[in-house]
């Protein structure tokens, strides 16, 4: 049975989207998958990754008209007969949440969070989230001015973390340093800026998928070994930490999480206590790593959505290493012409 899956986030750039990893995991799942890339720009590298993405289409921006977005999907669906869409970008999740009933009518299935889950995962709702899932959150204060920052750091003390609304976090050891980071982050990412209590520990990530009924479909934990300037994982090692796995399962059962997610936590060195930092409401860019270790979450998601049996175990080995690398492709300008002129790539010649 051939299954056609459309996947977004195929921007495998220096701040990589998860789409290419999702497609690779699906292609290696043993299912007969036709992978369709949904791109927002003609130069998203996934469009040109013929070995894992069969065809790509340009989408209208999710911030635009809902009708135009639906019409584009309808148009792609007429050509491709889509079975599943896996949304892999935070920015487009709200529109998919809105239009999911329309997609269901069209015969397209998705496993995405509800609006309430999406609201709770906001960095500024960390306290509320922490109470819901029973996992500690570091004390934090949201700031929209330097005066707010001063008050916050007086309360939190130094060192403290100064974090952006989307990306970047710095450890500040003095009021002057905190002010500098505040201005730098605000200029790059806007407000609010979050001042957060510093906890001596390491950051860990767990990927998982929830069926929306409180059951987890498998989880996989890593320690970030190196990160990019934006805090994205570059190299990682798989770990087996039962407290972390337990905390992740609380996310799934406590929120009845629906869809893929990345649970970002900090583990205090001294006490090994776990603090929730963030939940990303979709698969992370390193989604292929667990798939390569036997926890193929995109495949499990597709199997659930298409009524097939799927595994739910989280049996994997610790000490597996993920090395991310950069690479170059040589393509023809006609490939760029095709996608930029017609809004869709040419069919891959097998």
């Amino acid at each position: 049975m051939k299954i056609t899956v459309a996947v977004s986030g195929i921007n495998t750039i220096d701040n990589p989207g998860p789409g290419a990893g999702i497609c690779r995991a699906l292609k290696e799942s043993g299912m007969e998958i036709r992978a369709i890339g949904l791109a927002y720009d003609a130069l998203e590298p996934g469009i040109y990754l013929d070995h894992i993405i069969d065809k790509s289409y340009i989408m209208p921006y999710p911030s635009g008209s809902k009708e135009a977005f639906i019409e584009r999907i309808r148009d792609i669906h007429e050509k491709e007969n889509l079975d599943v869409i896996i949304s892999a970008l935070d920015a487009e999740l709200p529109i998919y949440m809105d239009i999911e009933p329309v997609l269901v009518e069209m015969g397209i299935k998705m496993l995405i969070p509800t609006k309430e889950m999406f609201r709770l995962r906001d960095k500024l709702k960390l306290k509320e989230l922490s109470e819901k899932i029973g996992v500690k959150a570091p004390e934090y204060i949201s700031c929209t001015s330097l005066s707010d920052l001063h008050k916050a750091t007086e309360k939190l003390g130094f060192p403290c973390m100064v974090k952006g609304p989307f990306y970047e976090a710095f450890k500040a050891t003095s009021p002057g340093e905190a002010e500098g980071y505040f201005i730098k982050i605000a200029a790059a990412w806007g407000y609010p800026i979050i001042a957060q209590k510093f906890i001596q520990g390491d950051e860990y990530d767990v990927i998982g998928c929830g069926d929306g009924k409180g059951n987890d479909m498998g989880v996989f934990a890593i320690r970030k070994m190196t990160i990019t300037k934006l805090g994205k994982v570059w190299n990682a090692v798989s770990i087996r930490n039962e407290r972390l796995i337990e905390a992740t399962k609380k996310v799934v059962s406590g929120l009845k999480w629906r869809g893929g997610f990345e649970f970002e936590v900090l583990m205090e060195n001294k006490t090994q206590d776990i603090y929730v930092l963030e939940i990303n409401p979709r698969f992370p860019a390193w989604v292929y790593f667990p798939a390569g270790c036997g926890i193929n979450l995109p495949a499990r998601m597709v199997k659930l959505l298409t009524g097939q049996e799927f595994e739910t175990h989280s049996d994997y080995k610790s000490g597996k290493l993920m090395i991310r690398y950069t690479n170059e492709l040589v393509k023809d300008i006609s490939d760029f012409e095709q996608i930029s002129t017609y809004g869709e790539s040419g069919e891959v010649k097998k």
């Binding site: 390491d202 860990y204 890593i222 320690r223 070994m225 090692v237 798989s238 770990i239 087996r240 930490n241 583990m267 610790s318 000490g319």
Partner: peptide, 17 residues
């Protein structure tokens, strides 16, 4: 701890080596 003869030590709980 996973301790190898080379002296390399891996902590599977924290991921530190």
């Amino acid at each position: 701890l996973a301790i190898s003869d080379s002296g390399f030590i891996f902590d599977p709980v924290t991921g530190h080596s």
